[in-house]
């Protein structure tokens, strides 16, 4: 089975988030970027399928930050057969543009299955996968937590709200948004990663910028504090006095 895994690096939420002076985006100057955890699950699922059924795993990523290289080398160290870095001017692109770029790059690859993390912290709706599937005119299933390969189709496990699971049969090729792999993503020893960075090569593609969708961000802001709680402390008599005073101030009692 030929499997494509779409991965990306995302801002690390361990640091405080700041908003850019334009008020429409994150200030990325001091942000650290890390691999999207759910893409790690997608890669793990791909590697498990490869171990069971043979085939090839190709990992793709848009080169949006320098941290992309290490993520791709780590994928190779885990057992991916090929890692592809897509270069270009990707400043300010949205999910529509990303999906169009990926569709173009995928013209160069044969595949039976495309796996990706179901969402990222920058894209809670997780619609790169569905958009790509619609551009390629193939099925999409999201929030997947298990994939088995039947003869010409896949049996996928999907989480439903309310603690239910469902199994669906999907024709291939298709795109799956992975919520969790069957096993937790495997560990890459640093020695193995460093060896890979010294010896392996990333395949590179150059891409033109694609058009964004029709959604424009007007404003990014921190949630405003809606209310607050105040603890009233002291002796019972003092507390009563304070409560009465507050109630009077609010005009509830006179």
């Amino acid at each position: 089975m030929k499997i494509i895994v779409l991965t990306t690096v995302i801002p690390d939420l361990i640091e405080e988030l700041e908003i850019s002076p334009d008020g429409k985006s994150l200030d990325k100057t001091y942000l650290r970027y890390i691999p999207n955890e759910l893409d790690d699950h997608a890669l793990e699922e791909a590697l498990l399928l490869k171990e069971r059924h043979g085939g090839e795993v190709v990992v793709l990523a848009l080169n949006i930050r320098e941290e992309t290289d290490e993520m791709l080398f780590a994928a190779l160290a885990k057992g991916a057969d090929k890692a592809v870095k897509i270069n270009g001017d990707f400043e300010g692109i949205d999910n529509h543009a990303k999906a169009k770029i990926l569709r173009k790059v995928l013209e160069n690859f044969e595949f039976d299955l495309i796996l990706t993390g179901v969402q990222t912290v920058e894209d809670i709706d997780g619609y790169v996968g569905p958009l790509l599937a619609s551009y390629l005119a193939i099925p999409y299933v999201g929030v997947v937590s298990g994939v088995s390969y039947l003869k010409d189709t896949l049996l996928v496990k999907k989480e439903l709200p309310g603690g239910l699971l469902t199994e669906m049969e999907v024709s291939i090729p298709c795109v799956l948004g992975i919520q969790a792999a069957e096993n937790p993503p495997r560990y890459v020893a640093i020695s193995r990663l460093r060896q890979m960075m010294r010896t392996a090569k990333l395949e590179e593609f150059q891409c033109e910028k694609e058009k964004n969708g029709k959604i424009e961000i007007k404003k990014v802001f921190k949630p405003e504090i809606a209310g607050k709680a105040e603890m009233i402390v002291g002796e019972p008599e003092e507390i009563v006095e304070k409560i009465v005073k507050i109630l009077e101030e609010k005009g509830i009692i006179k």
Partner: peptide, 29 residues
């Protein structure tokens, strides 16, 4: 076992990933 990449208890794996990323196993900034 680590080089094989499997059967590592999750807390150990997380501590190692944190240490390589942040320089501490707790995953703090």
């Amino acid at each position: 076992i680590l080089l094989e990449g499997k059967t590592t208890p999750q807390e150990v794996q997380k501590a190692l990933e944190n240490t390589s990323r942040y320089g501490n196993p707790l995953g703090e900034s």
